[in-house]
């Protein structure tokens, strides 16, 4: 998993619970060396364990954790990657660019297979005004995080919309498929 995902969570835990709590969280998750680099791909399993441990430490179920994470992720990236938000004037525009942004995070990975795995996770399937269809393909199964990000981005842009997950790997589908509808903003 790209290091950015992990880094955002680490920064939040340290800032809210303290560095000692973060170290304990890493121990609880069975992570020996906690990676903080945003340009590195870390072990998927370790990362997922870290998320589970954080949920327990914060007393949040999976959905609440994802909602929280989406919020801190948006805030974090607004600080460190403000240009991505400036480049998009709507949630749909941001999400339409999201696969490319995601790929840019893996651009430094030298292993071609690993880099391809990062690149191939998100794919725009359909794109029309007010409608966006995206496929997500990852063993990490973080489709809940995507849905949470969708809601958080609508909030950020002051928009309304709906995300249907018409396919889901948790249900045995080949990939997760998000069919997103965006209401037109009032002038």
């Amino acid at each position: 998993m790209i290091g950015l995902i992990q880094r955002v969570l680490i920064d939040h835990i340290e800032s809210t619970l303290g560095e000692a709590a973060m170290r304990q969280l890493a121990v609880d998750a069975g992570i020996e060396h906690l990676g903080r680099r945003i340009d590195t791909d870390y072990d998927d399993a370790e990362c997922l364990r870290l998320f589970d441990a954080a949920g327990e430490a914060l007393g949040l179920d999976q959905e609440a954790l994802m909602a929280l994470y989406a919020d801190i992720f948006v805030k974090w990236t607004l600080v460190h990657y403000p240009m991505f938000f400036q480049m998009a004037d709507s949630a749909q525009a941001f999400l339409a660019r999201q696969p490319a942004i995601h790929a840019s995070m893996g651009a430094g990975i030298r292993d071609a297979q690993l880099r391809a795995r990062v690149n191939d996770k998100f794919r725009i399937v359909e794109q029309h005004p007010g409608r966006l269809v995206v496929e997500y393909r990852s063993d990490n199964g973080l489709c809940g995080l995507y849905r949470a990000l969708f809601r958080r981005l609508l909030e950020h842009y002051g928009e309304r919309g709906l995300c249907e997950e018409t396919g889901c790997m948790h249900r045995g589908d080949a990939c997760c498929r998000f069919v997103m509808h965006f209401e037109e903003r009032a002038a």
């Binding site: 903080r36 945003i38 340009d39 460190h80 790929a103 840019s104 995070m105 651009a107 880099r115």
Partner: peptide, 17 residues
Amino acid sequence: DEIAIQKLAQLNNFTLD
């Protein structure tokens, strides 16, 4: 360890890619 430096490297890599 600076995020800005990592970001710079990461986006350069993206551009190179």
